[in-house]
């Protein structure tokens, strides 16, 4: 059975109780590095965003340090996310069932998950977070570098228009707008993980229970079981 709904490394690790491996240690470490750099970026970035949040720079030892740290954390996050991206992109490509699932989102929110179409490893909401984060981060990386004052002298001779003040005005506004949108996605992402009980263990231990996989990602579970039956779980 070819992998359509599952990623390399996904497998059933025990039958009684039924436990399914969802993420390997590398992916989990990668995810948490992304999350930690995101936290630093949010705390430092939003300190500059609004006067009443400036006190957040105190967490890092003051405004100068926060200003210095933020773009560095940004580069770390961008690199970390890119590595995560290549691992997750295949299963996040949109599929037909995502449309049906999205149309029935009301049922899910009101607790009737059993009428939702069965899914592979990711639902449309998770895919939205994935692609939204990827797109916004790309915008933030470019605009962030444009407004990285210390670094501007390194490239302004080659790209004088982009380094010019009118372009940087747009860049900083776009950066701030993307930051707001990214916060909305982040809230969606974290809240969905809290609301859907049993999800955190996927990113902590790397495994989920069979019931969790059955309820939320049935096609993924079925494929893993099929591969198990064929004798090639890996």
């Amino acid at each position: 059975m070819k992998r359509v709904y599952s990623a390399a490394g996904d497998r059933i690790v025990s039958h009684d109780p039924l436990i399914v491996r969802r993420y390997g240690p590398f992916t989990r470490a990668n995810h948490w590095l992304t999350a930690v750099s995101m936290l630093v970026l949010v705390l430092t970035g939003f300190a500059f965003f609004y006067p009443s949040l400036f006190f957040l720079t105190g967490l890092f030892g003051g405004g100068q340090i926060a200003r210095w740290l933020h773009p560095i954390a940004g580069l770390v996050m961008a690199a970390s996310f890119l590595i995560l991206f290549v691992q997750l992109v295949r299963l996040n490509l949109p599929r037909r069932e995502d449309v049906e699932w999205s149309m029935q989102i009301g049922d899910l929110l009101s607790g009737n998950e059993n009428v939702m179409p069965p899914l592979g490893k990711y639902n449309a909401g998770q895919k939205l977070v994935f692609w939204g984060m990827a797109g916004l981060l790309a915008v933030m990386l470019v605009t962030g570098i444009m407004i990285w004052e210390e670094m501007v002298p390194l490239w302004q001779d080659r790209f004088p228009t982009l380094a010019g003040i009118p372009a940087r005005r747009i860049a900083v506004a776009l950066h701030a707008l993307s930051a707001v949108l990214m916060m909305l996605l982040l809230i969606l992402h974290v809240y969905a993980a809290i609301w859907t009980r049993g999800t955190f263990s996927a990113m902590l231990n790397g495994t989920v229970t069979g019931g969790w996989a059955y309820q939320h990602h049935r096609k993924w579970l079925r494929e893993l079981a099929g591969r198990q039956g064929e004798g090639k779980p890996e």
């Binding site: 229970t209 059955y214 049935r218 079925r222």
Partner: peptide, 30 residues
């Protein structure tokens, strides 16, 4: 939503259903 809506919880019968599905799928593949 977290306070007032019901969480998406996996019930013991879901675990049983999952085991059933896995068994059936494994058998079919074999």
């Amino acid at each position: 939503h977290g306070i007032f809506a019901r969480p998406l919880k996996v019930e013991p019968e879901d675990e049983e259903d999952a085991e059933g599905l896995v068994e059936a799928a494994e058998r079919r593949a074999r």
